[in-house]
Each structure stands twice: as structure tokens, then as C-alpha cells.
Nucleic acid binder design. Structure first.
Lengths: 135, 135
DNA sequence: ATCTATATTCTACATTTGTAGTATGCAATT
DNA sequence: AATTGCATACTACAAATGTAGAATATAGAT
């Protein structure tokens, strides 16, 4: 698992475009972000910084540059999740969840889905006898 | 619910002391933070900024200032949680949870506890007949 | 070769955050 | 009153982030 740098609020927006498109030229990125009234250079600056941070790269040799992500959204999300947990909850998952189920008003449907996920998780987690998990 | 400003990593550490102690003089804060090798002025700067942000205040008139928090840890945690959800998961609780139960390796015990919390939550949420929740 | 539009780079500036030196105020002590 | 020590304030600086103007390059049209 590679080192994930910190990614700012606005940078996430740019990354989102890249993650959703897989790869994109600058104008594609720009038009995908047109709802944000960012100037072109602003977007370019962010791309440059993301490249410097090692999370975005350019396909070399092609006329209009093609940008693509070097890290997966999942990796970044995971990284953010843990840094959030650490900062705000001293890393206590338990504490976090106790607050979370209160703060976020989950619908009954969401709760049920979550329950299902957790049940599945439990079965998968415990390696009692069947150590072979064929996904 | 008052406006919660953004609170940085290091600032959280200071807030934690205040939240845990309820109130504290500077030296108390300093000694509570001694594991971080911060210079005194660093801590003071953070307190000043937290005051400017409106999340900490000083009990006026007393010899060594007594600092105390103006916002609860719960409020701040909630605020951080939502801003995290928004930034990283576009606000999708569902998406977040699906990833979360995978990323965080919950022990079976934790899963059980969470299941219990959720069940309770479900009962509490639906206001079918018993609208009166005596905590 | 020149013009024009798009592509790409460089530079700049404000704000937030982490970090800390220096200076001043005040109080107890000699 | 001068000294010493803690309390409080002022100032400074670097890195990260959001934001964008200005300059240059490059390609296609004239």
C-alpha cells in the first residue's frame, strides 16, 4: 500500500473527475468541473500539485495531455477515514460508531442494510474452521 | 446549533485537554500536553486562535487565566464527521458505511456491539406509538 | 509568415495551520 | 528599587491550500 499524501478539499473534486473518467484531458476535466466557477489556471494548478504529490500522472507523448490517477479512490478514502478517526476520535472506532449512529439520521432501510453488511462481515471475519474464503 | 469553525490537527489536541478538564489554566494545559514537545508559545498561539475562532473563552478577572471551551466535543465531532462525509464520500452515508466495515477491521465483539446499537437506534427512530423517550 | 485559439507553464497572493522567538507585564523576593 | 520568574502578548516564518493573472508554446487557419 503506497503512501497517500494529504489531499485538500478542492483537490478531491479534481481527483473525483479523474477517478470517474479513468483518464481525461485538461478540457475534459475542465468541463466536468464547470459547476465550480474555477478559472482554468486554478484547475491546472491543482493538477500540477496532484502530480507533484504523486497521485496523478500524465500520459507522456500525447498531444493534449491525458491525466490519470495513480492512486485509487478506495485507497484515498481509506486513508482519509483513518486520519479522521485518529484526529477526531483518538482512533476509537467504537466511540466513533456510537456517535455516528446518533448524528447521522439513518433511515430504517439504511439501518437494515448496514445490519446485513455487518452480519456478512462477521461471518467472513471469523476464520473458525473454514479458513478458505472463496469470494 | 452554533457555527463550528474548522479546527486543525494540533488545535484538536488543545481542545481535548479543555474538554476533558472542563476548564484549565495555561500551566495545566501545558502540563497536560507535555508529551507533545511543543514550546509554550506554540500552545499559547493555538489558544489565542481558538479564542479568535470562538470555540474557547477566558474566565475574565482571574489571576492566571482560566480557559474553557465554548463548544462541546460532540458538536465538533459531528461537524467533522459531516465535513468528512461530504468531502470524501460526497455525503453518501451508505457508500461510506459499505467501505467502512471493510476498511476498519472490526472484531466480532465490536460488530456485535454495533449491531446492538443499531437495533436500539431502529427502535428509537421509528416514532410509531411511543413518542416519549425517557433516557 | 502571421494570426488566433487552445494548451501549458510560471509566478503571485491570501488564508490557514504548525511552530516558535522575543518582549513586556506583573508579582514575590531580596 | 532592582531582580527573578511566571504570565501574557506580539511578531515571524514556513508549508499547505485555494485562487488566479500573465506569459509562452503549439497548432491550425489565412
Amino acid at each position: 500500500m503506497k503512501k497517500i499524501p494529504s489531499i485538500g478539499e478542492a483537490e478531491w473534486q479534481v481527483m473525483n473527475v479523474l477517478w470517474e473518467k479513468g483518464e481525461a484531458t485538461f478540457s475534459e476535466i475542465r468541463s466536468a468541473l464547470k459547476e465550480h466557477s474555477w478559472s482554468q489556471t486554478t484547475i491546472h494548478t491543482m493538477l500540477t500539485r496532484l502530480i507533484k504529490k504523486g497521485v496523478v500522472a500524465i500520459k507522456e507523448g500525447i498531444s493534449p495531455y491525458v491525466f490519470y490517477p495513480l492512486v485509487s479512490r478506495e485507497e484515498c478514502r481509506k486513508h482519509e477515514t483513518f486520519s479522521f478517526l485518529k484526529r477526531v476520535y483518538n482512533g476509537s472506532v467504537k466511540l466513533f460508531l456510537a456517535n455516528f449512529v446518533n448524528d447521522v439520521e439513518l433511515s430504517d432501510r439504511e439501518i437494515d442494510e448496514l445490519l446485513k453488511m455487518l452480519e456478512k462481515c462477521k461471518t467472513t471475519e471469523q476464520p473458525s474452521e473454514g479458513e478458505n474464503d472463496n469470494a
